[in-house]
Design a protein around this nucleic acid. Structure first.
Lengths: 163, 163
DNA sequence: GGTCGGCACGTTATAAGATATCATGGCGTC
DNA sequence: GACGCCATGATATCTTATAACGTGCCGACC
C-alpha cells in the first residue's frame, strides 16, 4: 500500500495536469479513504467529515466520490458498497480486488493474465467492455496463517478429535 | 438461456436430491427470476409476488433469495443489486457475467482461462478464495450491431460530419 | 397422544445506501 | 457589473437490506 500523504500529493498533481479541481471536500474524502487503507462506506466517510469544520449531507459525499471515481483516484468495491483509494491512479484502469472476509482488508491487484483472459472471452462474445468488476472474497494470507497457528496451539493443548 | 420450465424442473430435482425444501415461496421467486430472463431486483420480485394469492414483505423475498443463492440456483449481480436465475445449477460455481448497459441483458459465462488466471493470481498472494464476483459492463453484440446500423442509416440520410 | 424442537414464514420497524430537486455562493469572463 | 459555470448546501425521498420477534406446521421421540 502507498502512504496516504503520497497518494494525496499524486492526486494533486494529476488533477492539476488534467485541469480539474481537487477541491477541499474532494481532497477530504480522498484523505479519509487513503488514511483508512481499507474499504469505507459513504456514510462512514460522512461521519468522518462531521469531525471537521462543517456537517455534510449524503449528496456532498456522493458527489465527491463520483468525481474521484471519474478521475480514477478511488475504486468502488461493489460487493461491499464501499470505496478504497487507488494504488496507482496514473492511468485509468480496472483492477482486481482480493477481499478478506476475516479482517476486511482489501488488496488491489493488476494481473495481465486475468485481464487478457477477460478481454478474450468478451471479444469472443462480440461484447464491447466498458467497466470491469473483479472481486474475490476469501481469507487473506495473514489471516490464514493466524488461523493455522490458533488451530495448532489448540491441538497441542488438547490433543483430541479434530474437525 | 435455458427455458424457464426446464430450470424449475431441474431445481426441483436438485433440491430433492439434496434433501432441502423448494417451498412455494422459494419456487415462486425462482419462477419469477427464470421467466424474466434478466436481472431483477428484490423489490421488483416482491411486486411480482403481490400478483399472487398473498402479500409478502421484504424479509420473505430476501429469505427465499438467500436459500436460492445457497443452493446455487440463482446468482446475485452485485453491480446491479439484482438477481438472475442460474443457467447451470448442477454444480456450485461462480460465473462471469456480461452486462449490457444498453438493453440490460446479462449473459452468464463460464470460462476456464478466466478462472485459471484468477486462481493463479490468488494463489500467488496466499489468498484462499471463497467467492468470486466477475462482472463486465459494456455493450452486447446485438446492441452494438443495432447501433452500427442506426449510424449507417443516419450517415446515408445526411452525409456530413461524423462524430 | 402429547410435547418438544426445528424450520419456514408473517409482521413490524428500521438500518443502510443512493439520488432527485432546488437553492446558494464563489469566481472568472466579457 | 451581469452572466454563466461549477461546486456545494439543504431537504426530501427512494431503494436496498436486515433486525427482532411471533406463529404455525411437522416430524421425532417419549
Amino acid at each position: 500500500m502507498t502512504a496516504p500523504r503520497t497518494q494525496i500529493a499524486r492526486a494533486e498533481v494529476l488533477c492539476r495536469e488534467r485541469g480539474v479541481r481537487l477541491t477541499d471536500q474532494r481532497r477530504r474524502v480522498l484523505e479519509i479513504l487513503c488514511a483508512a487503507g481499507r474499504p469505507v462506506g459513504a456514510y462512514e466517510i460522512m461521519d468522518a467529515m462531521r469531525e471537521g469544520p462543517r456537517v455534510v449531507a449524503p449528496p456532498t459525499v456522493y458527489r465527491a466520490l463520483e468525481f474521484l471515481l471519474e478521475q480514477g483516484l478511488i475504486h468502488k468495491i461493489e460487493s461491499l458498497h464501499a470505496f478504497v483509494g487507488c494504488d496507482h491512479p496514473e492511468h485509468p484502469h480496472s483492477s482486481e480486488f482480493l477481499i478478506c472476509l476475516e479482517c476486511g482488508g482489501v488488496a488491489e491487484l493488476k494481473d495481465d493474465a486475468v485481464e487478457r483472459s477477460l478481454a478474450s472471452v468478451t471479444r469472443e462474445s462480440g461484447f464491447l467492455p466498458r467497466r470491469r468488476v473483479v472481486e474475490v472474497m476469501g481469507i487473506c494470507a495473514r489471516c490464514a496463517r493466524k488461523e493455522a497457528c490458533r488451530r495448532k496451539e489448540e491441538a497441542e493443548r488438547s490433543p483430541g478429535p479434530v474437525d
